[in-house]
Amino acid sequence: MRATARVYWRLLAAGFRRQSAYRLAALGGLVANLTFGLLKVAILFATVRAAGGELHGYDTASMSTYVWLSQGLLGSVNLNGRTDLALRVKDGQVAVDFLRPVDLQAATLATEAGMSLFALIPRGLPSVLLGALVVGMRLPSNPVFYLLGTVSLLLGIVISAATVYLVAVAGFWLVETRGLQILYMLASGFLGGLYVPLALFPGWLRAVAAATPFPSIMMDPIDVLSGLGGEAHAAGLVLAQLAWLAGVAAAGQALTRAGRRRLEVQGG
């Protein structure tokens, strides 16, 4: 009995120790996240105030909500374009992945989404909580927004994984996907609304953004969660996200098949 208890205690302690390495990493990320958040708050609050206290539906309280939700999402959506899969495609190890009896795209998205969800605990929630505590923010009172918001958040995470998947599988045709990866990083951050909410963009640039899946990764979940624009608007955003997910997932599936054929013809 005592020996068994000791084994479990050891396992527990080992798990705790292993986790503490991640805790340090999470703490580091959190400090950086908060600092950027405070700087975003400073410049965006100044913008709202310069516009007379209200700008495209944002006051300082809802701007704060935008800032801290976006900072919180940062650790869970992929805005840098880097993936393990891209490396595996480049060095040819993906051929081994194709031998497994699972769909490459589905398996990759599931793994990425799992990691993203986990990142909400040490990175996402503390960012939002600390931001709310230090700066204050407004949250909707209607529970519908939380329900729709959760769905929208999950969709954002999966769309992010599915879009960055496209960058990775482009490696079947391109020798070097680094340029594409950086392009993804810049476009997803800027057009996804990481630094400035899309509502503040001039009309033509908003139209450009709307033609890409990037707003549905970050901006839409934030809009739904913060309840800006009402219930119908929020539901519309979620539907649009579903459409984008179907689109990028289908593109990924098609590219995977074509890439696999190419690999089989060329022999790796």
Partner: peptide, 17 residues
């Protein structure tokens, strides 16, 4: 910092911003 290396981003890249 070891694993917490990202913390310095706060004043290096946050500093640039």
């Amino acid at each position: 910092l070891l694993d917490g290396a990202e913390m310095t981003n706060a004043f290096v890249y946050g500093g640039r911003y």
